[in-house]
Design a protein around this nucleic acid. Structure first.
Lengths: 126, 126
DNA sequence: GGCCCACGCTTCAGTTGGTGAAGCATTGCG
DNA sequence: CGCAATGCTTCACCAACTGAAGCGTGGGCC
C-alpha cells in the first residue's frame, strides 16, 4: 500500500487539504531556496552550498534527497574524481516556480514596506 | 541600528532576498495554516485549535505571538470569564492570502497527480 | 614519495522548534 | 462541592537543523 504523500515525516493535519499538502512540501527551512536556485538549471552540490550561504552540507544533502524522493529534483551523478553530481528540477519541481515568483513579489513588497517604516521612524528616534 | 526584519530567529542567508524574506515569514510549520484559517475573519484561540487539528496549544500560542510581532495578526482580548481572545489578519497579513491561494491551487494539482499515479500503479501491484 | 586539495557527502554533539499531556486561574452551573 | 470552559504556560521529549570534523579518491605540486 503506497503512502499517499512522499513527504518527510511530521505530517500536517488534513491530508486532503491542498494548502496543507503544499505547506508540507515546502515547510523545510531551505526547501524553497533550494528549488529557487535549481531553477537556473543543473547545479552542483557545492554550487548550491555557496549560493545558499549558511546551509550545512548535511541539511542540503537531506533536502536534496527528500526532494528527489518527492520527485521534485533529479540527480545526475558522474563517476569522476573528484566526484561530480548535478541536480535539476523535474517538471513537478518546475511547477513550484510560479509559487516562488509570488513569494518573491510578496517579499519584495514587504521589504519595501519595512524599509519605509524604518525610514519614517528612525529620524524621530535619532 | 534597527534590525531589518522582525522575524523569529533562525534567519536566512540573504536578508535582502525577497524569496528568503517570505520564506522566513512562513517557514514555521503551522504559520500558513494559521493565516489561512484567520482569513475567514476574527477567530478565537480554541476555534483555531480545532480547525488546525493536531496543533499543540503551545505552538499555536507561539505562532500567534510571532505573527502579532510581525504585524500580520491583531489580537483582540475581552476581559470576560471564561476569557475570550479573538485574532484577525491585519492588512499585511491579508497580503499573504494570494500566496496561500497559489499554494492551494498547486496543492490541488499535486494531490490530483498523486492520486492518479496511485490509481495507475496500484492495480499492477495488486 | 609525501602532502594537500577538491568534491560530495557522512558523522558527531549541540541548539532550536514542535509535541502531547498536564496544569493554572477564573467563575458559572448543577 | 466538583466540573466545565477558555487561553494560555510548563514540562519532558523528539525531530530538524547547526558547525565542525572526517572520509575516500585521485590529481597537482614539490
Amino acid at each position: 500500500m503506497p503512502k499517499a504523500m512522499p513527504n518527510h515525516s511530521g505530517r500536517m493535519a488534513d491530508e486532503t487539504c491542498p494548502v496543507c499538502a503544499t505547506a508540507d512540501i515546502i515547510c523545510g527551512k531551505w526547501t524553497i531556496l533550494v528549488i529557487r536556485d535549481l531553477a537556473a538549471g543543473r547545479t552542483r552540490f557545492c554550487e548550491l552550498e555557496r549560493s545558499l550561504a549558511g546551509i550545512s552540507p548535511r541539511t542540503l544533502s537531506l533536502r536534496l534527497r527528500a526532494l528527489e524522493e518527492e520527485g521534485m529534483v533529479e540527480r545526475h551523478s558522474f563517476p569522476e574524481v573528484p566526484p561530480r553530481v548535478e541536480y535539476s528540477l523535474t517538471e513537478k519541481g518546475q511547477a513550484l516556480l510560479p509559487l516562488i515568483e509570488d513569494m518573491r513579489s510578496y517579499g519584495k513588497e514587504w521589504l519595501k514596506v519595512c524599509s519605509e517604516a524604518r525610514a519614517s521612524v528612525a529620524p524621530v528616534a535619532a
